[in-house]
């Protein structure tokens, strides 16, 4: 009897041990998830509460009488520094800076990756190593030199203005920020694209050469259309980084109408006139965070694998 049951016993105890393991693992995961999502939850519920409820209620409780008034106020009326016209202007400042910066740095990264893998020249590894180095430079250390360069560019713009009547955007704060973000984004975008194109079949490039396609025709017709996955990764990465950047934004466009969203948000929260409107602040913060979320949700769908299927052997 015991001989029959004994093999079953360790199996059942093993089963319960496994169940216990699962409980511990999922329990911990849930705990961390709650811990991580708690601030977001507080922000979200607070942004839909009235001030009375915030002052008298529990931080974690759901809004008793939900209102979207704080969101409208944050968007159109709240005070940033001394001007009280909401954050919408700054939101567009950020868009105007982020979109060109992301596109330019991504396209240049793609071009760099293309050259570094398919048009190799003597010393290409050194060039790539130096570009990689850019990924590891702490940005605080370049604040002052970059400010000097931007100042020179501004003076050059003023000279151009006098000579031609047009300054080509040099000296404009938004253009400055685009320039800075492109320069410091290039290291990463080049890294992404180089590694992707390293595995890209070189025979496609050779075939296109035999077909008579030029350097840029190959890039535009062959490389880019087959780079969707890495393009999406790079765009998400760059968009998130540049949109969320506070350091460069506050250093080179920290005052007045040219502030990007991150700096403006900081000023909303720091504006000390009367009572602190937590609901409006939270709504403003949510608005500031939305674009990166949207980019992830929209672009993430194109994160498809197997785009290269069929290029080479089956």
């Amino acid at each position: 009897m015991s001989a029959v049951t004994s093999p079953a016993r360790p199996a059942s105890s093993g089963m319960s041990a496994r169940t216990l393991n699962r409980i511990v693992i999922y329990g911990l995961l849930a705990l961390f998830a709650i811990f991580y999502l708690m601030p977001l939850f507080v922000m979200l519920v607070t942004s839909f509460k009235t001030m009375d409820e915030i002052q008298n209620g529990n931080m974690l409780s759901l809004p008793q009488s939900p209102t979207i008034e704080p969101w409208f106020k944050a968007w159109g009326q709240t005070c940033v520094g001394l001007t009280c016209a909401g954050i919408k202007g700054y939101f567009w400042n950020s868009i105007k800076m982020v979109v060109p910066a992301v596109l330019i740095s991504t396209l240049l990264g793609a071009l760099n990756g293309y050259v570094l893998t398919k048009w190799r020249f003597r010393g290409h590894t050194l060039v790539f190593a130096m570009m990689l180095f850019a990924c590891f430079i702490p940005f605080q250390s370049v604040l002052l030199p970059m400010a000097t360069i931007l100042g020179s560019l501004g003076r050059f713009g003023a000279t151009l203005q006098n000579a031609t009547g047009f300054n080509f955007g040099l000296g404009n704060s938004t253009v400055n920020l685009v320039f800075v973000h492109v320069v410091y984004g290039l290291g990463f975008t080049t890294l992404f694209f180089r590694n992707y194109y390293e595995a890209f079949p070189t025979e496609l490039v050779k075939a296109a050469q035999v077909d008579g396609a030029s350097f840029f025709q190959i890039f535009r017709r062959i490389m880019l259309p087959n780079s969707m996955p890495i393009f999406v990764v790079t765009v998400i990465y760059q968009f998130t980084n540049i949109w969320n950047d506070f350091l460069f934004a506050s250093a080179y466009a920290g005052t007045g109408d040219v502030m990007p969203m991150t700096v403006a948000l900081n000023n909303v929260v720091n504006t000390s006139t009367g009572v602190v409107e937590y609901n409006v602040n939270m709504a403003a913060a949510m608005i500031a965070a939305l674009p990166t979320l949207i980019v992830y949700v929209v672009a993430g769908r194109y994160f498809v694998r197997g785009l290269m299927a069929g290029a080479v052997k089956g």
């Binding site: 025979e203 496609l204 050779k206 296109a208 035999v210 062959i222 290269m308 290029a311 080479v312």
Partner: peptide
């Protein structure tokens, strides 16, 4: 290559996937 009046078939076929 494009001026040599040649055509090439590659080992991997090198068909443009897009």
């Amino acid at each position: 290559p494009s001026k040599r009046d040649i055509a090439m078939v590659f080992q991997s076929y090198a068909l443009y996937p897009n």
